[in-house]
Structures are given as structure tokens and as C-alpha cells.
Nucleic acid binder design. Structure first.
Length: 359
RNA sequence: GGGGGGGUACCAGAGUGGUCAAAUGGGGCAGACUGUAAAUCUGUUGGCAACGCCUUCGGAGGUUCGAAUCCUUCUCCCCCCA
């Protein structure tokens, strides 16, 4: 549980990905050209919104900021060091990204990232780190981890030198690195825990390593990060991954899977996984998900949703995305209930079987 | 009535004597996707007791060691001239 000026985060929680466009609307006046450039650069900056967020009002054709009542989180761009490898140059000082749109160069330093995240107005700001690929040789992993630690110190210094930009409290979360090496993970987790922030993140996982390795590293790090602070596992994962990692002590998750896979026709439900392009749904006029919590679940049939995907109608991905996000939110909310009622263990085992089967 | 062009796999459309179960695209089927440059990418798509065999390029018949490809004929479609 974490209190912010925009509400309390009750864990476990899954953070859906919002849009850079929303950021722009939120603090239009505050956005400087360089920030716009970084948003254009790709999804280098991401705004994470909790569902139900209602911050934008369209007045006279212009979107205006009207405030919000749910916490907002932004990432730092560290993941793009991994995902945009061929478009960036990394140095001790920071990273230079080259825009795929106009080729323009943009330097990211810990200080600048903090400034920008302040301006975006996130309740939770992520430290600038380097997300290493998998596999990663030990020497590089160690060097990268030490750079991430140095950057963290610079992030914190800048963070402490600046003030909350919009009158509400902003928090900075550091990120554990160390690739798939136990000693590095331990060293990094101890260093991160020592910063004593309101929450701590685990990064550098779900980058291609075997799932078992991801669990192993998560378990190790969760054993070091304090239990009374939020533990945020970045970029994970499938419903099964989330259940397993909740069991290991993780409080927060974010991932593109529910949205990206939805766009590609994959639906997650409490009873299993469906590929909506499969012919088997062709004549299934039953609701998408009888037990689903989203309005789309009973409003549309599987056959109709399949038809939309087959016809390449944008409504298909839209419905699937709404469904998947609702399912993820349901999954973590239910997990919380089960934890409170002390029934999480048995519930998890049951759900693991259901959630991983193909329908 | 005269002249010309054409019928190829689910569809469109290459191929014009052996290297052709037949290019390519679409469609179909299936898979992948993990802090989003991702409404994307990949595989597969005649049959079978599959390192081989059988059936298939409008129908029938022929030439040839060998035919989707050449010849004869039938049939259907399109265009031009009357």
C-alpha cells in the first residue's frame, strides 16, 4: 500500500499503460520543446494510468486538464536503452537516442530525466537505469549495474534539489539491476534498499531469460528489498507470471502483454487463453467472457469478436484490449482479497492451472 | 456470320517440353509477443500406410522417353468487326 496525493495504491496492483498524448494534454503549458521531442522519439516516456482515470475534458474541441484522482507513474527511458539498442549511444554520462522520425538526437542524463518526469507530473517517477539484455556477460552486467547505481545517485541528488512541480507529492523509485547473476542482484538489491525510498523496482528481467531464471532473481531480490516498501517488478508479465511473483512478494506490475497481445488477438480469461483468430470461435455466439468484469465481455460474442479480427476491424483490438485490461485488474484485485482472507495459496494453485490452459 | 484473346490450386495470377505439387499476392489455418518505434511478426496451406508414391493446370483424344506447356477436337468465357 502506498499513499499518494492522488489516492492510495492498494497492492498487488497492475498498472496499465497510458499514452504520451495524454501526458501532453495534462501539462500542455509545462511541456517544453525538448520533452515533446522525447515523446515523439517513440514511447520513450510512458505514462501509466490506473483504470477509471478521468483527467481530460474536451471543451470547445480542445483537451483541457481537469485533474485526476488516481496515481500516475512514468518510466524513465531505461528500457529503451535495451529495446532501441541500434538507435542509442550509451556513455557514463547518459544516453543519446536518435529519433527514428527525423534523426534528431536527444541526450538523456539522470538529471534531465528527473526534470522531465517532474514536468510530466507523475506521482511516481522511475530512476534512469540501464536495462541489460539477456544473455549478458558478467563483466558487462557488473559494469552496467554500477553505472545504474551511479545514475541513481545523480537522480536522487537532482530529485532532492528540485521540488514538487504541481503542488502534490512526487516520489522517485530506484531500480535493481544485475542481469541473471545472483551476486550482482544481491549487491544491487542491497544498494537500492539502502536508498530508503517509498518503493523499489526490479528491472532487467523479462528480457528473454527463461521464466525460471526470472522467478529465481525475483525471489532473491524480494528477500532483500524491505517488505514494508512497495516492490515493483517492471515489465511482467503473463497472468501466470503475475500470480507467481505475487507469491514471491511483488506488489506492483506493469506490462504490455495485455494490450499488445489483445491487439494481436489473444485474450486472457479466468478459464484460459483464447486466440480470437482461431476458427473454433467462428460460430460461438456466446459472450466473450461470462465471468469478465468489463462491459464488453457480455456485450459481444466470441464469433463477432473473431469476425472483427478476421476482417481487420479496429474495433476487434479495442474490445480485446478492454477485456484484457479488465481481466488483469480483476486478477490482482482478487489476489489482494485472497491474501487478506489467507486463501491466496490454494487460490493461486487453482488459478495457475486455469489461467495457463489454451481454450 | 468473320477475326482475336483466354480457361492454372479456395480466389487472383505467373509458368509455355523435363529442374512443376506448380512463382507471387490475397484468403484460410496455426504459432509468437513480457518497464510498447509493435492494429506486428513467423510458419503452414492437394492426398497418403511421406527420404517415396498417387491425383491435379476446362473435357476427350493424340505426339513424345517425358505434357500445365505441342497437335486435334469438344466446351465455356471475354473483346473487336458485321
Amino acid at each position: 500500500m502506498l499513499h499518494t496525493d492522488h489516492g492510495t495504491i492498494e497492492t498487488p496492483v497492475f498498472i496499465p499503460v497510458g499514452t504520451a498524448g495524454t501526458v501532453k494534454a495534462v501539462h500542455q503549458k509545462e511541456l517544453k520543446d525538448d520533452i515533446k521531442a522525447q515523446i515523439i522519439l517513440g514511447n520513450t516516456y510512458h505514462l501509466y494510468l490506473r483504470p477509471g482515470l478521468d483527467i481530460i475534458e474536451k471543451a470547445g474541441g480542445i483537451h483541457q486538464f481537469i485533474g485526476w484522482d488516481k496515481p500516475v507513474l512514468t518510466d524513465s527511458g531505461g528500457y529503451q536503452i535495451y529495446s532501441l539498442t541500434d538507435r542509442r549511444k550509451i556513455s557514463e554520462n547518459g544516453v543519446v537516442f536518435q529519433s527514428h522520425i527525423d534523426g534528431s538526437k536527444h541526450e538523456f542524463t539522470p538529471e534531465r530525466v528527473v526534470d522531465i518526469e517532474r514536468t510530466i507530473g507523475a506521482d511516481i517517477m522511475m530512476a534512469f537505469d540501464e536495462c541489460t539484455p539477456f544473455p549478458c556477460d558478467y563483466k558487462y552486467a557488473k559494469k552496467s549495474m554500477l553505472v545504474t547505481h551511479k545514475w541513481l545517485e545523480r537522480c536522487i541528488k537532482r530529485f532532492d534539489q528540485t521540488t514538487d512541480k504541481f503542488g502534490y507529492s512526487q516520489k522517485l523509485f530506484p531500480i535493481v539491476q544485475g542481469s541473471a547473476y545472483k551476486d550482482l542482484r544481491q549487491q544491487s538489491a542491497e544498494f537500492i534498499a539502502g536508498q530508503n525510498r517509498e518503493g523499489n523496482a526490479i528491472g532487467g528481467l523479462s528480457v528473454g531469460e527463461p521464466t525460471e531464471v526470472m522467478y529465481e532473481m525475483t525471489e532473491l531480490v524480494c528477500g532483500i528489498l524491505p517488505a514494508d516498501k512497495l516492490r515493483y517488478l517492471m515489465g511482467v508479465g503473463t497472468p501466470a507470471n503475475i500470480l507467481e511473483c505475487i507469491a514471491l512478494g511483488v506488489d506492483m506490475f506493469d506490462c504490455v502483454i495485455p494490450t499488445r497481445n489483445a491487439r494481436n488477438g489473444m485474450l486472457f480469461t479466468g478459464n484460459g487463453i483464447m486466440n480470437m483468430r482461431n476458427e473454433k470461435w467462428k460460430d460461438d455466439l456466446g459472450p466473450i467472457d461470462n465471468e469478465g468484469t468489463s462491459f464488453v465481455d457480455r456485450q459481444y460474442s466470441k464469433a463477432y469478436l473473431r469476425h472483427l479480427f478476421v476482417s481487420k476491424e479496429i474495433l476487434g483490438p479495442m474490445i480485446a484490449t478492454l477485456h484484457n485490461l479488465a481481466f488483469y485488474v480483476w486478477l490482482v484485485t482478487e489476489a489482494r482479497k485472497q491474501i487478506i482472507e489467507n486463501t491466496f495459496g490454494t487460490w493461486k494453485e487453482k488459478m495457475m492451472k486455469q489461467v495457463t490452459q489454451r481454450l
